[in-house]
Design a protein around this nucleic acid. Sequence first.
DNA 1: GAGTGGTCTAGACCACTGT
DNA 2: CAGTGGTCTAGACCACTCC
Lengths: 272, 272
Amino acid sequence: MSPPRPRQSKFKDVADSLREKIRSGALAPGEQLPSTKHLALAHGVSEETIRLVVKELKDSGDVVAAWGKGVFVRRPRQLVTREPQFRYPWEKARARLSEKERATSGVSEYDTGRPRDHFDFPASYHQIEADAALAARFSTQQGTALLQRLYRTTVRDEDHPIALIKSYLLYEMASQNPELLDETREPWPGGTMHQLWTVGVEIDRIVDEVATRAPTPEEADALGLATHMAVFVLEKTSFSTQDTVVEYSEVVLPGDRTRLRYTVQLERWAEE
Amino acid sequence: MSPPRPRQSKFKDVADSLREKIRSGALAPGEQLPSTKHLALAHGVSEETIRLVVKELKDSGDVVAAWGKGVFVRRPRQLVTREPQFRYPWEKARARLSEKERATSGVSEYDTGRPRDHFDFPASYHQIEADAALAARFSTQQGTALLQRLYRTTVRDEDHPIALIKSYLLYEMASQNPELLDETREPWPGGTMHQLWTVGVEIDRIVDEVATRAPTPEEADALGLATHMAVFVLEKTSFSTQDTVVEYSEVVLPGDRTRLRYTVQLERWAEE
DNA sequence: GAGTGGTCTAGACCACTGT
DNA sequence: CAGTGGTCTAGACCACTCC
C-alpha cells in the first residue's frame, strides 16, 4: 500500500521540490513556472513525469495552468470569516425594521464588509417533493411539497461566488404569502428572517451542522476551486418559536477562503 | 485551463464509470475491483490510463490498493459528532468533581459513547518558544516559553486516532503545579479544565475557529485518510475569567468521519 | 511461478497562444 | 511558425502476494 521503493520516487522528488519553492515564496504568486521541457531537463526526468507532477500541483490548487501559455503559481484569495453567533441575531433584529432600513444592507455585506452594490444575488425557485432526507429534516412525509431556492452570493469584481446555497421552505407555509413564491422579488430586503415573519413565523434558534469534503466538479467550477481543495458544507436548520423546522439550507463554502467562528460561553462556578 | 477536447477524455470516461459503480453500490464496500489488465481490456484503453484512474480513486479515498493483492472499495467509517456547546460545559462541570468521579470518564467517551478502557491517550510534552503566531494567540512576546502538549485520541480496536491535538499552555503558568509538566501523569482525570483549576484558573469561554484543508502527508497517514480527503482544523482558544488566553490548541479532525454541531439561540422579539 | 499493483520513459498526436 | 500544455499508449522494469 505505501511506497514499496526504498528510495523516494522521482515523482515525489520533483513534486516536493516544486512545492517547496512555492511555499517558501521562491516562486511567488502569479509567477510562471519553467516549461515542462525545462523542468524535465533540470530534474533529469521525462516530460511525462513532469506533466504528472504539474497535474498534481494543479489539482491541489498550488498552481494554475493557462492553455498554450504556461503554468503559474496560484494567488491566494481573501479570507471571509463567518460568525453565525453574531450574524444570526443581527439578521433577526433586522427583520422587523422598516423596508427602507432593511434595504440598506444584507448578510453578505455583514460577512465581507463590502457595500451592497458590489453584490449580485441570482436566485431561482423551484417547487419540489421532499426526498427521504429532506422529509426527515422537516419531520414530515416523503413527497411533501417544498420550495427550493437556489442562491449564489457573488461579489461583482470577483470571478466566483463566496457561497452556494440551497434553501428549503415548506411550500404550504411559503404560499401563505404569494410574494414568497416569486423569485423575481429577490434580493428580498431583510432576507429569509423577514420573509418568514410575513407568514407569522419567528425563529427561536438555528442549528449549524458542519461537514467537510471535496467539492463536486460543479462546485469546484462555480467556486473557483481546484478539484482537491476542500469545501465546508454547512447544514443550517431554523426552528420556529413553536419548535418546528421552518427552514433548512445547505451552504457550500470554499475551504480556501472561509473560516467559521463560534464562541461557547460557560457558566461561572459557584463560590465554595 | 479546462479540457479543450470537445469529447470527454478516455480518462474521465473510465473514472466516471468506476466512481458511478462505487457510489451506486454496484461495487460494494470491501469488494475487489477487476485487475488493471481486465479494466484496460474492458474499457478499451491502455493499462497506464487505468493506472492513472485508479490512482485518482485511491487519492480521493474511494478505493484502497493492497500491494500484490488488488484494489478494493473503501469501507466508510463511523461518524463522530462533536458538539462543543455541550462538551465544553460538561468538561467544566467535571473539573471540580472528586478524583474518583473524574476518573470514571473523559471527553472522548463523551463524543463517541465508548467506554474509557477502549481508548489510548499517548501524550508527549515539550517546552518550546512561541513563534509569531503563537505569541499573538497568547498576546505575549515572541520567544515566550510555552508548554506544548501533543495528543492523539485513539480507539483501541481502530487503526487510527479520531483527532490529533497540539495544546499550548504558558510555561510559567503551568509550572506553578510541577505535576502539570509531567507527561507521564496523562491521561489526567478531569482533563485540561481540571489541570488549569489546580493553578487557580477558571475558564470563562472558549472560541472555536474552524478551517478546512487537505491533510499533510503525516496527518493523512496518522488519521488513515487518502491524500485528497479533507480535514477540519479546529483552533480552540480558552479564555480565563480574567479574560486572558490560558490555553490554545489546534485539533485536526478527519473530515470523513467528523461533524461539528453548534446551536445559536436567538432572543425572542418583544411583544408589540 | 503467475498474478497483482507501481514507476518511469519515449514518443505520437492534439490544441491553444503568441509573434 | 515555434512554444506551450494535454492525452494516450506500448513497453521495460520493479515489488509484493499467494500458491
